[in-house]
Design a binder for these strands. Structure first.
Lengths: 283, 283
DNA sequence: GGCAACGATACCTTCCAGGTATTGATCCGG
DNA sequence: CCGGATCAATACCTGGAAGGTATCGTTGCC
């Protein structure tokens, strides 16, 4: 199977429309039809059910959509990492680390400082991104290591080392009645009148149905809390980012949040290994 | 990047010889040279340093060798899983489970029985293979789920659930002086006169240097122990496979062996999910 | 029933993958 | 120091496949 065929199939499977898929790929529709037919013949498997009005995925087609995306990601990662490895080493980012913008500044700073002090340390670029994006960046080879937070982020398919665990707090508008408490339980905050928990986007960018405002990142969320439109359950370390309008109260029975350092399983880079070792020593 | 280019590059990188690589690929040498040149131009990176006598990998080339192999595995897995999904469901293996031939028969039997009793269970094919092969089968899409044993097997790049842990025993020829002991420590058995620990092959099939006989699987190993040519440290559960010529004594300070069930991170299969759930309930 | 939408087919053109023959560089034995 | 052997690169040719345009056949819909 060639990546060209995979790209074509994924486009059709996502659009479920040969014309639009062809347009997206920048080719005419007939060659696209033909390529998909060849692919089906070669695999000995129908991938799409087409009437002259609708296109739907067969069972085999859904499998190839999922597996094919993963394979394309892997190819893209190989290409990107190779390109990076070929850049002149002066000034090239030796390592790209990705983490959530909302993550603990302290842990990250400690890690970067400690690593920089290691013999043989290379320059580290830090990418801050919204929740859920880190895994994609790591899979696509845009980053070498990530700081993830279980159970929010999935560590699917990566090597990981745990760096630490912390409890969670509920973030409330300053002056809210609950802020006088030394601690609360989950039951105290689900269904607080006027302060629903927010909804985060699914990996595909859509929001699950239900009450609560839609948020895209942590800054947005804190803004909404300050406005009295939501409350939030967040790791303790976010307290460092709270300003006067916000208050935090520990939630005793909220799940512990584990910070892990994650990297692609076949990484052969000495820099990644050094950084991970530094991180685990920090613990 | 096309998979054809990747396959060609990997062949050259492994052979470090254009002629042999071309032969292995079943093409002539000139088109191979040209394809690699195109690839290098497109990546903007030298992958190979060639004098007219020797070929060596550049830094970027080593990166592409590792990443490219992973990408090719992913493509192959996509292809194989799609083909499987297209087979007529009557009699088709719904699930392929791979485990070491030496693994506990009991756990596997319990798991298969419990899963078969689930509503919606599909037929499960079991592949037994030598140590170290499971990860490859899983990565290449030849299997859907594996039973691995930490710390022997790496769980690199898979989702896992722990199923249980066990201690280890030393397996000795019956009648060996140590067999009268109720337990031993590692120090008692490293350097037993005439009974060295065996050497297992590396992933590439070669053996590390050193003393001790080379073994390829557990049956070989037990044979060697029975012959009085080696001793072995193995998980407790292997006792079920010992016959009269062999004896086992617990090793108190040997690392615990954890049995885990592992599956590819993007598996969307309900059957895999059901099997994993069954396995964790068994625990 | 006619029209619009949409995938498949037919047919042509271009380009590239692959083959053969050869060159050019380097190592090595004498 | 020379001649042959080795090995990658170059030159050139050919067939097939990828892509384009025009058109057909089916189907849903007003």
């Amino acid at each position: 199977m060639e990546t060209r065929e995979l790209r074509y199939f994924v486009a059709v499977a996502e659009e479920l429309h040969f014309g639009r898929a062809a347009q997206r790929l920048g080719i005419a529709q007939p060659p696209l039809s033909r390529t998909i037919q060849q692919l089906e013949r070669r695999l000995g498997a129908a991938l799409l059910d087409r009437t002259s009005r609708t296109v739907t995925l067969t069972e085999a087609g859904s499998v190839l959509l999922v597996e094919g995306r993963a394979a394309l990601d892997a190819v893209e990662a190989a290409e990107r990492r190779t390109r990076r490895a070929a850049l002149p080493s002066t000034g090239r980012p030796g390592l790209v680390l990705v983490t959530k913008a909302s993550a603990s500044r302290e842990l990250l700073a400690n890690l970067l400082d400690a690593y920089a002090a290691e013999p043989g340390a290379v320059p580290v670029d830090v990418i801050l991104c919204g929740p859920g994006e880190q895994e994609r960046l790591l899979r696509e080879g845009r980053a070498d290591v990530a700081l993830l937070h279980r159970p929010f982020d999935s560590t699917a398919g990566f090597h990981t080392e745990e760096l630490g665990a912390e409890g969670q707090v509920v973030v409330l508008p300053a002056g809210h009645p609950l802020t006088v408490r030394t601690h609360v339980h989950m039951a105290d905050i689900t269904g607080l009148p006027g302060l629903p928990l927010p909804r985060w986007p699914d990996p595909d960018g859509t929001y699950p149905p239900g009450p609560g405002p839609q948020v895209r990142d942590h800054a947005q969320l804190l803004q909404l809390v300050a406005l009295g439109r939501a409350c939030a359950v967040s790791p303790e370390s976010c307290r460092a980012q709270l300003h006067g309008d916000l208050a935090a109260v520990p939630v005793l029975d909220a799940p512990k949040v584990t910070t892990v350092i994650a990297w692609p399983p076949h990484s052969r880079s000495r820099a990644v290994a050094d950084l991970v070792r530094t991180a685990t020593r920090l613990r």
